[in-house]
């Protein structure tokens, strides 16, 4: 039975991807893309990677989908003229690439190093039970530090491009004609979303979850509030900007302060490793939520493009 489900899921993925690439209307492509994201979340569950399923659903399909839909909203016409005409050569190359990849999968030497055992052996000293959180925030924490920096840079560039806009253009002119149904629904849902985010963060240390998934859910909540015309970001502009960098600031501060104690960079003291990781994750969740929300909020768009 499993094989049938897997093959259905795989073919479904390919169908969605085909839908994304070959539908003429961009809006239909984006919708198919979101469907692809959900199917991919299912695939990660089949590959015994629940963390990834959560992340894919929240960030991959959810947030990217929202960004794309928001971008599509501002395009005047959705379909575009025919693609380039020379298609035979690229087609052959891509098919060759796919075949080569699949062929190479079974020409695989026996793996001499087994990392999962190493992770399992040193899991107790990492301070958390869940191996993925251990890898993310202890064994390869330097990668996560750089990853947060990448997110921050994206937010900074968004701010840079937006500050370039004339201040008038950014503040949306229409007064708060809040849609009552959406507002009511959102005002009740927001606390629940916050609760779920905190739970996912908390659960991260011993079961699938963690900073990124929590942050993504928080961002989804903030986006929902923004769509329901609760413009929270106007009240604390500078506080919001501090919030973006706060997570990275704390992570870097912790990473460097341990060095004063003589330990190498990013080494948590053994006894308190778990607490350190939880503290960092909490701050990261808050920061990632704000960054992902500001990426949505900063994107330019209100101004009508002039035709040149």
């Amino acid at each position: 039975m499993q094989f049938a489900f897997d093959s259905m899921l795989g073919l479904g993925l390919l169908a969605c991807a085909a839908g994304v690439f070959w539908s003429r209307d961009l809006f239909r492509s984006v919708v198919m893309f979101i469907a692809f994201g959900l199917l991919l979340a299912l695939t990660w569950v089949r590959l015994e990677a629940p963390d990834l399923a959560l992340a894919e659903a929240a960030i991959g399909a959810g947030l990217t989908g929202v960004l794309l839909l928001d971008a599509i909203g501002h395009l005047r016409q959705h379909n575009e003229h025919s693609p380039r005409n020379h298609w035979l050569l690229p087609l052959l190359c891509c098919i060759a690439l796919a075949l080569l990849l699949i062929l190479s999968f079974n020409a695989r030497p026996e793996a001499s190093i087994s990392l999962p055992q190493l992770v399992a052996e040193s899991l107790p000293e990492s301070g958390v039970e869940h191996p993925i959180t251990a890898v993310l925030l202890n064994f390869r924490s330097y990668d996560t530090l750089l990853e947060i920096a990448v997110l921050l840079v994206a937010a900074v560039v968004a701010m840079a491009l937006n500050d370039g806009l004339a201040a008038a253009a950014r503040t949306s002119t229409e007064q708060s004609n809040r849609d009552p149904v959406l507002a009511g629904f959102t005002s009740r849902l927001a606390p629940v979303i916050l609760l779920v985010a905190i739970y996912v963060l908390w659960a991260g240390s011993y079961m699938p979850g963690g900073a990124f998934q929590g942050g993504a859910i928080l961002a989804a909540g903030l986006v929902l509030l923004k769509l329901a015309d609760f413009h929270i970001e106007r009240y604390a502009e500078s506080l919001l900007r501090l919030g973006l960098a706060f997570g990275f600031l704390v992570f870097l501060a912790v990473a460097t302060s341990v060095m004063i104690g003589g330990r190498p960079f990013l080494t948590y003291p053994e006894a308190f490793a778990g607490q350190f990781i939880l503290f960092i994750e909490a701050v990261l969740t808050f920061s990632i939520g704000l960054i992902l929300f500001s990426l949505f909020n900063q994107s330019p768009g209100q101004e009508v493009p002039h035709d040149n």
Binding site: L115, S122, R140, S141, Y142, D143, P264, F265, L266, T267
Partner: peptide, 11 residues
């Protein structure tokens, strides 16, 4: 070795 984890586990 970052984080005192020797390769291939750490970076």
């Amino acid at each position: 070795a970052i984080g005192d984890w020797v390769a291939p586990l750490g970076i």
